[in-house]
Design a protein around this nucleic acid. Structure first.
Lengths: 188, 188
DNA sequence: CACCTGATGTCAGTGACTGTCATCGCGTAG
DNA sequence: CTACGCGATGACAGTCACTGACATCAGGTG
């Protein structure tokens, strides 16, 4: 496999997270990240389209979990129930990553450009979910709305989990958020 | 008022929209926009924080309509009903701007960076709505979720209105989207 | 008329990102 | 064993978004 030091992407991601935490996102240059990873700036941009993307390497895997789980629910299940099942699987995906999630999220929250990119990832997730629902026979705009609603629940639940020191699980937070949404839409 | 040619911002926004439509967002430099507006690149960046922001000058006014209307609904109204009333006012805000909205939206849709910025504006809208709901006595996470749901409805309805040649009003599209969301959350 | 003030111009710089070409080290055909 | 292919990397020059510092200009004020 590796003809040079292996796992260049992993080294870049670790170096970036460290530097962004140490001195902030804006005060870190791509060249500094590359240097700490033992590579050059040019190589950094071969692996990541831009300086932000290096923090979002895992988002494709997350989207995979979302989509695969949703696609695996029975076509007969109501969209909201399928979404509930999907959120359970997503909670499992984050098992044992609470500390990493917290660190990464603190960096993202501290910078507007990174928050911007996070929104893109969530929107991409939403679009993927909507497509999956459509393939399951849900018509638009119901499919888009169900997807948006699912992402809204994920956002709220995830945010509360990251800020939760009490040890309640992500699954717990997601279930609670979904319950709130049901109440709201019913006119509560 | 104007000691130089008046309405510098208006000229910059018009020049930017025209150039983005003519040659695309990426192929347009800030210097070109400024030149067409009879100004310098430096002055462009005094009016807009970056090259994308020039397309979003109206978003603050939109947020104002959203927030003011929502704040004006009776505290006794259920969040979803308050949101319905708010969306009616928002529809009025876009009266007579269908063609402008279509042009602007086609530019935004064609470019990833602009779509990214649009997401930020919608998120800002959502946060403002959530804050307004909280001030009206709605607890979190219900407030955040109601706001997210309202924005989801707006997104879907607006998108359909922009792509609608049949002449159905924005208010129509928003009402339909809201109805779909009610159905979904009820388990339909 | 002298002065203040806000909008603009000028200029030099930093850093994100790209195109291009050279190089390196391993696998493979012959 | 050797020549060659090839993917990952390095070196380097260049464009452009964006910023800081300072000069300038036009109109209002006293």
């Amino acid at each position: 496999m590796g003809r040079w030091e292996p796992n260049a992407r992993g080294r870049l991601e670790q170096a970036a997270l460290d530097l962004y935490r140490e001195r902030g996102f804006e005060q870190t240059t791509a060249a500094q990240i590359a240097e700490r990873a033992g590579l050059t700036e040019r190589t950094f941009f071969r692996h990541y389209a831009d300086k932000r993307e290096v923090l979002f390497g895992g988002s494709q895997a997350l989207e995979q979990v979302f989509v695969d789980t949703l696609a695996g629910t029975p076509d007969t299940a109501a969209p909201i129930d399928a979404m509930a099942a999907t959120l359970e699987a997503v909670a499992a995906f984050f098992q044992g990553r609470h500390e990493f999630a917290r660190q990464r999220q603190s960096v993202i929250t501290a910078n507007a450009e990174l928050r911007e990119r996070e929104l893109v990832k969530l929107a991409s997730l939403s679009a993927a979910l909507a497509g999956t629902l459509r393939r399951r026979g849900v018509e638009d705009p119901a499919a888009s709305l169900a997807a948006e609603a699912g992402i809204a629940v994920f956002k709220v639940g995830f945010e509360r989990w990251v800020g939760d020191d009490g040890g309640r699980s992500l699954a717990d937070h997601l279930r609670e958020a979904l319950g709130e949404l049901r109440l709201l839409a019913a006119g509560g």
